[in-house]
Design a protein around this nucleic acid. Sequence first.
DNA 1: GTGAAAGCGCTAACAA
DNA 2: TTGTTAGCGCTTTCAC
Lengths: 334, 334
Amino acid sequence: MEKQTITIYDVAREANVSMATVSRVVNGNPNVKPVTRKKVLEVIDRLDYRPNAVARGLASKKTTTVGVIIPDISNAYFSALARGIDDVATMYKYNIILASSDGQTEKEVNVLNTLLSKQVDGIVFMGYHITDELRAEFSRSKTPVVLAGAIDPDQQVGSVNIDYAKACKEATELLAKNGNKEIALVTGSLLDPINGKQRLNGYKEALKEANLPYKEGLVFETVYDHKIVEDLAERIINSGATSAIVTQDVLALGILNAIQDRGIKVPEEFEIVTSNNTFLTEVARPKITTTSQPLYDIGAVSMRLLTKLMNKEEVEEKQIILPHGFKIKDSTKK
Amino acid sequence: MEKQTITIYDVAREANVSMATVSRVVNGNPNVKPVTRKKVLEVIDRLDYRPNAVARGLASKKTTTVGVIIPDISNAYFSALARGIDDVATMYKYNIILASSDGQTEKEVNVLNTLLSKQVDGIVFMGYHITDELRAEFSRSKTPVVLAGAIDPDQQVGSVNIDYAKACKEATELLAKNGNKEIALVTGSLLDPINGKQRLNGYKEALKEANLPYKEGLVFETVYDHKIVEDLAERIINSGATSAIVTQDVLALGILNAIQDRGIKVPEEFEIVTSNNTFLTEVARPKITTTSQPLYDIGAVSMRLLTKLMNKEEVEEKQIILPHGFKIKDSTKK
DNA sequence: GTGAAAGCGCTAACAA
DNA sequence: TTGTTAGCGCTTTCAC
């Protein structure tokens, strides 16, 4: 015989009250006489009653669940963001439906729709660039959306980022000040506005202020891949670069190793700066000088912003820029 | 004016059919005349109708959602498992509710109950040891549970693991064969049966077969923490050990660095073997010899097993042991 | 092949 | 302070 599920109705019957009263007790509604509350709580305990969140979601049109779209959960950058998102979500009693996109637009649209069909109260989106198609989907529903570490040119949805241009400019400035004439920039796809607009601009600006010419041959657009690192390092060296700014820690570490494996001394003969200050910059030898993005905070603040949006609170500014830092370690002369 | 949500009723009305027929079309039920199906699909498209998964969940008592309990999503070991879980879940059209436990029993019980209240169809649990309290909760509900990389002494729920004892024994054997008389074992909590039972036993067995005495002073029980590594490395060296087996890659890398920073040569003067073959073993210098656990597969197989359990398929064996490997790299003499 | 109607377990007016 | 009663949007018998 199947074990019968206990419903709110069973509790009401046993406690000699109405379903509404049980509902009030369960939801902490103060309009219940203490005696009644006590009686109901006893029955709930005795029957081992657990409210059915799905039924509740249907009736109230709130699921206390948010969707989180992530390109790759096993990527340290994204999982750091996810950690921040998750902690704040827990704090505000939300659960998270995690959906992987592999950074592919088609899948992004797909999972977005699945999440919406599951009636999530809001969505945090991590990814590279936001295609028009995706933006269209965002505005098609009234479910609030926040981008964590991604930029929406339209500024229709919320977003949390750092000032990538400034960060990249600072890194370039340091390398220029250290006497480098040939500074390589190694980034992800330039189609992604964070790279192609912000970072590239910051880089160019710093070059100009240092009276260094901008050379296309020093800009390396790449996707991270274990096998590509050796070849990439080779090309960077051949380009004549004496230093490099890398926008991803794993990649920077790979390049650092490849360069040193060739007998080139870091930082004496080659300097390298990276971008995310994950623990990889610490376990590398030498430790890598890095921009420090507050990854956890970007995630946390995104989720916090989303709670406000879901709650229909007034937010003065939906486009949040968090401060970043710069940590000089041992992969640069100073 | 609020945008009205389109329901199955709207579609039925517009298409001049009943809700039941629309439901059949949406669910791919073959008992619908092609003409009717076409008509309904057109209306669905025109109205931009999206089925409400919550309502569907309430009516059908299936949510196509599984709960995943994870100690720390930003930990490379767990996120590798999660990746495998997620991929297979997607393959079988399940969504994932991710719930963090920090490895604390209290939170584990807590999130388990939240997940059950959200009516997940099944649960994948990652964690260290399974307390009695947790086991009691597992058996309290009939929702299927699978442990990924964790052991249930009772064997009541499903689980996917490797043979940790054998893996640890192999590592010990290698170090013994290389001439080490003092082999340190650095593991997480010995209360966790994977460490305290399996790994420790494998270690002892290998020692015995190599005619080496077991010394308690060579067993280091530790939790990973950035700040503890220096001190730990110091203690390992002082213990007289000339080699170490470490059960966590980050930790192994930290120890490797700390030892080399002290001017000790690896592998000439100190050999080290680690356990998870994450990319960290590759970016380390020297690269670290390691047991290779098929992390992604453990996750993937767990989820696959769970789909069978949720589907009430017969499974001959709920306790799955996956094969592991051993990769000799540069942190051991051979 | 299709429709009518009874729930699924809960919330939220509204009334008392 | 409490109860009555519609739904929420869908699935699923059971008839026809």
